[in-house]
Write a protein that binds this DNA or RNA. Structure first.
Lengths: 210, 210
DNA sequence: GACCAACCCAAGCGGGCGCTAGGGCGCGCT
DNA sequence: AGCGCGCCCTAGCGCCCGCTTGGGTTGGTC
């Protein structure tokens, strides 16, 4: 992807291109990136496969555009929440709600990120995925650490282990989340936070667990 | 796959075949099923691609063998644990330990199951994956329900939602689990259970936990 | 009304894919 | 000694993949 000399940062693209990115994203999410052919994408967009290359220079550019847009969007939301100055537990709750909210607004992108990350990140072109993931990790762990220091969160499990636990369970829920299902993302987030913060047991285990 | 008329149930295969299944599984796990070519598998096995077809009739047969072996193995472990007659919370803890234990013994199969399930299950040939998943789901939920009835587990969050949280966070940990890392699977399972059962929040100042 | 840029089509190229056909080699058995 | 069989090789087929090339059509602009 060559940089645009006129608008080097803000990457303006046509509405049609954004449309195709969304269409391709849906296909990538359901049948996987490698299993999706450019002809299938073109079919879904109502054009021929060759015409895709008026908008993109390669199939990789499509998934790259999908990932960049998504990561930029959710990155902004995270930093907004984290810099709100609320107490750590409140901030954590807000972060969880942002993450589950992405299930509704960017379902395809979340699924693709979850399914293809490990493969894509092996190629230099997609190293920006790792950058975004690591930045997110630092942001969450900082909140968790603050919560542990302030006393709102337990301190006997390392913050990075808790973070992985959180992240995994949230993102993987894209596998069973249905936009037309009974539960709104916020309701799922609340259920999740109930178990996460309160614990599954009715009372704290009296015997030592380890 | 044609059934063997002599041993219709117990599917005996050569040691070489099992070896190749393991090799292919490692490749499927790291770079994805669709991104792995039969030539790469053959290379890793030290033979030529055509020679693979002495052992398998297709590339699909390889991943099918990998999945069948794994699901059969862990299915046995689950039913053994569930029918041990222990109290629900103890049974739940044992189930979690079995699942994390699979990270060490069948890392590749777990990763492939996690990454390729959604795509594979769309084809009739791999409907056995759905069967196994649903059977596992019933088994876990039964334990959770028993725990809720007995009073050991909280009842204000539906069992199936709790199960999904559990399952997802456990299996996805294959993404960051490293067999040569500092933590053994049992230690990870204990950390996990601590957060899961006890909750992340500090409730009524825990004087005896410090 | 000439022009341009944005889109799209028609046709197909080169390459890598999964898979096949037929033959060679060595080990264990009788 | 002779044979069968498990295992692998040599050589390559046919298909579908991502992508290219050159040209046609349309709507907005001056």
């Amino acid at each position: 992807m060559t940089a645009d000399p006129v608008t080097p940062d803000v990457e303006f693209v046509s509405a049609r291109r954004a449309e195709i990115v969304a269409i391709a994203g849906e296909l990538f999410a359901t049948r996987g990136y490698a299993n999706t052919t450019v002809r299938e994408i073109a079919d879904a967009a109502g054009i021929l496969s060759g015409s895709l290359y008026h908008h993109f220079d390669s199939k990789e550019s499509m998934i790259e555009a999908l990932m960049r847009d998504f990561l930029e969007d959710i990155g902004h939301q995270y930093t907004t929440v984290a810099s709100a100055g609320t107490d750590p537990v409140t901030t954590l709750r807000a972060l969880v709600h942002v993450a589950f909210g992405a299930l509704a607004t960017d379902r395809a992108a979340v699924a693709v990120m979850l399914n293809e990350y490990n493969v894509l990140v092996q190629y230099p072109r997609f190293s920006f995925l790792r950058d975004a993931v690591e930045a997110t990790e630092r942001l969450w762990i900082e909140v968790l650490d603050a919560g542990m220091r302030a006393g709102g969160l337990r301190q006997d499990v390392p913050a990075d282990a808790v973070y992985r636990f959180l992240r995994d369970a949230i993102w993987v829920s894209v596998r069973w989340y249905r936009p037309d299902g009974p539960q709104r993302p916020d309701a799922i987030a609340d259920d999740y936070l109930t178990v996460l913060l309160g614990g599954l047991a009715t009372r704290r285990p009296t015997r030592r667990d380890r």
